[in-house]
């Protein structure tokens, strides 16, 4: 990968506090987030570009945009 060392922003869900309401799923422009078995929101890190729409929408404010090392 050309930019293997650059850090990328991804949405991170605090699953212990997630209420699985699905507001994040509705706003995600890339369908990178889904509700896993009705328990919590699960981000697909390969698709997520860290735009932050889900974090803004989340009623419980349990999504953070964090920098992650590229893998």
């Amino acid at each position: 990968m050309p930019d293997g060392k650059r850090k990328r922003k991804k949405a991170k869900v605090d699953v212990s506090l997630c209420v699985a309401c699905g507001c994040c799923v509705k706003v995600c422009p890339l369908s990178a987030i889904q509700i896993y078995k009705g328990i919590y929101a699960l981000v697909d890190p390969k698709t997520c570009v860290g735009c932050g729409k889900c974090a803004a929408e989340c009623p419980a404010s349990v999504i953070e945009i964090k920098e992650e090392p590229n893998t």
Binding site: V19, A20, C21, C23, G38, I39, P59, A60, S61
Partner: peptide
């Protein structure tokens, strides 16, 4: 937040519990 009811909605809590 607009949908903060969802955070403590009893039906939401209950269905999440059932799913869990």
């Amino acid at each position: 937040k607009p949908r903060s009811w969802c955070v403590y909605c009893p039906m939401g809590t209950m269905t999440q519990l059932i799913c869990r």
